[in-house]
Each structure stands twice: as C-alpha cells, then as structure tokens.
Design a protein around this nucleic acid. Sequence first.
DNA 1: TTTTCTTAGTGTCGTTATGACACTAACATA
DNA 2: TATGTTAGTGTCATAACGACACTAAGAAAA
Lengths: 245, 245
Amino acid sequence: MARKLSEKAFLTDYNIHDFDVPLTSVDMAIFTIRDSQLQVLLVKRAQHPALDCWALPGGFIDLKRDRTLADTARRKLLEKTGVDTPYLEQVESFGSRDRDPRGWSVTVAYLALIASEEIRLSRDGSSEEVAWVPVEKAEQQFDLAFDHTEILKSCHGRLTSKVQYTSLPVNLLPREFTLTELQQTFEIVLGNSVEKKSFRRRILDADILEETGNVKTGSNRPAKLYRVKADGQSHFFARNIEGPR
Amino acid sequence: MARKLSEKAFLTDYNIHDFDVPLTSVDMAIFTIRDSQLQVLLVKRAQHPALDCWALPGGFIDLKRDRTLADTARRKLLEKTGVDTPYLEQVESFGSRDRDPRGWSVTVAYLALIASEEIRLSRDGSSEEVAWVPVEKAEQQFDLAFDHTEILKSCHGRLTSKVQYTSLPVNLLPREFTLTELQQTFEIVLGNSVEKKSFRRRILDADILEETGNVKTGSNRPAKLYRVKADGQSHFFARNIEGPR
DNA sequence: TTTTCTTAGTGTCGTTATGACACTAACATA
DNA sequence: TATGTTAGTGTCATAACGACACTAAGAAAA
C-alpha cells in the first residue's frame, strides 16, 4: 500500500523533460502500382532540416491525437493520399545519434500498400510537393533526406521477400480483379515472370479469393473477377514462389 | 546558400524540450535453452513504475554512449548476461499513450538468442533480481510489467515462425554441436518433433555447417561435431519444415 | 456467317524437397 | 562376445510446383 502511494508520488514528480530523450517519429513507404511499375510516394520537404529534399512521408507523433504508433501512420497516410483503410505493416525502426542533425532520433518505418484507383493525392492543404516515383529510381537516383534511402530499401526488401510466400500483393489491387491482373502485380513486385498455371493453382488452392460473379470483358474471352474473402488474412504458402529455372 | 545558413540557424535554435516527445526505450526477449525448455530472461524491477514487477530487461537509450538502437540492446544484454556477441534481431516497436503510466512511450523490442553455456547472470552490480523462466510460463502465469506480455509474445512468435524456414536455432547452441543436439533445439522451439532423416538432409543440404573434425563421445556411437560456417548468414529454406502429418 | 486474333483458363507430366520408416554403423558396458 | 543405445543412411511415397501444350470464349475483321 505504501508502495502504491509512492508510485503515485513518483508519477506526480515525473517530468520527461528532466531526461535526455530522442526525437521519435514515424515514416512510411507507401507503395502502389502505376504504369505497370511499383512506385513509392515521396514528398518534398517544406521545412528544415533537409529543406527541399525529397523524403518519405512521415512526421512526429501527435501525443494528443494519436493513441498508438499505427494511428500516427494512418493519419499521415490519410493526409497524403486520402486513403483510410490501407494495408499497413510496421517494418523496422531506425535509431541513431547521427541520422538527424537535430540529435539522437528514432523513426518507426511503416509499409503501406494501396490501389492506385483509390488515391487522391495531397487531399490536405499542405503545400508540400508530392510525387509518385518508381521504386528503383527513388532508391538509386534520388538523394533522399536523412537515412530515408535505407528506410525505403528496408521496406522494399520486406515487400519483395513477403511476396515470395504470402498473398500480400492483393492489397495493391482494387476490390475486384482478375487472376491475370493479380499475376501481373506479383510479377511487377517480384521483378520476374511467374508461370501462369502454377500461379493460378497456388492462389486458388490457398482459398483466399472468391468469385464476385462479375466478369471483365475486353476484346477477347471474359475474365472472372475475384475479391479477397472476408476473413482474408494474408495467406502464407508452404513453399516460396520460384521464378523461371 | 542562404538556405544552408538558415538550416544552421534553425538547428542552433532547435530545442527538443520545446516539443512533446514520447519516452523511447529498448526492451528485449533473451532466449536460451535450459533443461530442454525454451526459457526467457526476466528481471524484477527495482524502480518505479511497476516496482517489484517482473519485466523484460531493457531501458532507456543512453544518448551519450549509444550510437544506435542496436548498441542500446547490446549494452543491456551484456549487463544482464555477460554475453557480448549474441544473435540479435529487432522485432517490433510498441508505442501508445497508455502503455506506460509516465505518458506516451515507444519501445523497440529486440530478440536475442544465446547459448546457456555462455551466460553469467547479472555480471553487473545492479541489484535487480534476474531469473530464467520457461516461455510459456512467463507468458501465461506471470503478470509482466507494462505491455511486456504482449512484447514477449511478439518476440516468441517471431522466433517460432522463423524456425519454420530458417536455420536460426543454431544460435541457441554453443560453438560446436551435434546434429542431434541441433534437432532437439529445433524441436523445443517448434514444440513438436521432426523426422530425423528429413531434418539432417535439410540442414546438410543447406551447406551452412561444417564438421569440426571432433566427435562427441558418450556411451554409444560417437557423434560428429559441427559448427556454423564462417560466412554463415541465417539460411532460408525454400519450404517450411513440417511437423508430423 | 465464318475466320482469325487474343486473352482466359486447363491437362498432364516431370522435378524437387520433404515425410515415413526400416535399415546399418559404431561405440560402451557387462 | 553379446547387448543396448545412439548416430547415421537407403529408399520409396507424396505434395506442390515448373513447364508447356492444349482448349475455351469472346470481339472484330472478312
């Protein structure tokens, strides 16, 4: 009982500003497929430090409005893209003395996958410039702010490795899609082709999709449209998908 | 040029204490095999908050001494166990308004694997009580401080899932070990038995081990001793290991 | 109406890593 | 020398995949 009281006293006296704490933020790699390429959203910084540098969208936690880290990530995503129910996954945290000139800092990196159809860029009034950039170009030809190139590579690496054994790319497509569209999405993310029959067996046997009853007609045989099943967690396959041998 | 100067001016004026920032710490689940069980290291907190509660070892980043988050984790591990070259992997970060009574806080969780032979508990002068506890017991019967039960489950989950498709459990063994010992380690982490021949084929075909030339003699046929190859990254298998069908 | 083109979707066989399980090998101890 | 115990192997069945040729169904041209 005495101890309970003394914890209360401890908390009353506690002031975070008495201690050295790092800056802590959230950054995110928002991926989509545009023009048959995997692209990532970049923003041009409108503030110091790294003013005018391209960077991953992100920012500080709003201690008043955000209950959790994921809230911060969702808020940033909504501000930039207008998308509010994305696939969102925490990837890795980066913390060091040198990554930000303001001092010791930690950033929690998130990965988001969205369908390009759902995007309305820069819905908020922020004046930052926003752009979709093909991932390879962003990694190799952009000199991103802070350690954002490393963060982007980490998120991209997580994505490409999970494609090997999960059904994660379904999150890059709109609600209804054909198996061929899904296959193309896998191929774009993987960076190589996959065999049609193997792919379809794999996906259909996994029992993660259901037919919508609709078909997509074009100038050829209509293709059945599918959607992710309601309970659809990202499915894990027992084996990795292989490229051509 | 004017901008470069103004960034300098910006940094001169910048004071982290002008902003609300969360507390940021590192916590870790240190696993080892003892008594044929997967066990995790717990410490009894000697300070508020959650005084006298069992918790995962961890603490705040030392902004002066730690260059990176991994430094903080390594330092904590060394303080508690005397082990300084462990397998160390960042798992997940937990941040929310409510997880710590002191206010908004973020903790970066790490997973460490060490061989029980290498441990010298509580090498430092800290007066905290330290104990190895079987993982299931720690998860189910201990009321850990803060959200440490959730953190432990996350680290444990990462471990058990990676066992399915990597050679990660080699890090729970001493430098030299027999294939049977390695198999037992896999079985303990997996929680079920694996078939001897399949296991040996898998491990040997992966080409991650080399014979030391030594054998372990007992009251029967001697067993060849192996060690992890020098370049040994944790190997990824193309298929998951299956339990009995 | 028929042909042709294009994309959707299937049948089937070989390959590969694994599970199952019986088998042999090598030592200590009695 | 026999016996028990653990190390390690031979071999076949199986599951999931790659390869690739095949059929199906529509639009548009002829």
